[in-house]
Amino acid sequence: MQLDDLYRQVIMDHYQRPRNLGDLEGGTVTVDLRNPSCGDEIRLQLLVEDGIVKDVRFRGAGCSISMSSASMMTEAIKGKPVAEALRLSHTFRAMVRGEDVDRDDLGDLEALQGVSKFPARVKCATLAWQALERAVGHDEADGGTN
């Protein structure tokens, strides 16, 4: 078990300097989510127009993994069609579960690949993505699309 596999530089950078931190005004979807077993929490706000994620912000409290994952996610989905953001979410979840995925789509997010070797931390990495899926009405945990 190598700590450097988990705590890559880019992760610590996003943890220290989170991107898209803050609030959005008007016309947005807001999702508040927490991981009750550890207390991590996130508020994700999306502005979706014509099926495109026009803007996104988050606020939260949690460990370096959950907060850097949220920060990287906001960068990755901004300006993308919702369907593409969802595809990315599925790819990301598969990656941190240790499955083989096409990493080309992931960009910086690939840095979180090491989470797959730390099963106790998978929930940290996926909190923001769960919020995203809930925000666009495709929550796997709720039994799929609605």
């Binding site: 078990m1 207390g39 949690g62 370096s64 106790a120």
Partner: peptide
């Protein structure tokens, strides 16, 4: 400056098991 989960992961890498979280005491946190 370090979240207790991150502390716990580093300790675990050295074979040390501690608890990190809200300890079922959210009002106290």
């Amino acid at each position: 400056g370090v979240h207790p989960h991150d502390v716990s992961t580093v300790l675990d890498a050295e074979g040390i098991a501690i608890r990190a979280g809200h300890h079922c005491a959210q009002p106290l946190m």
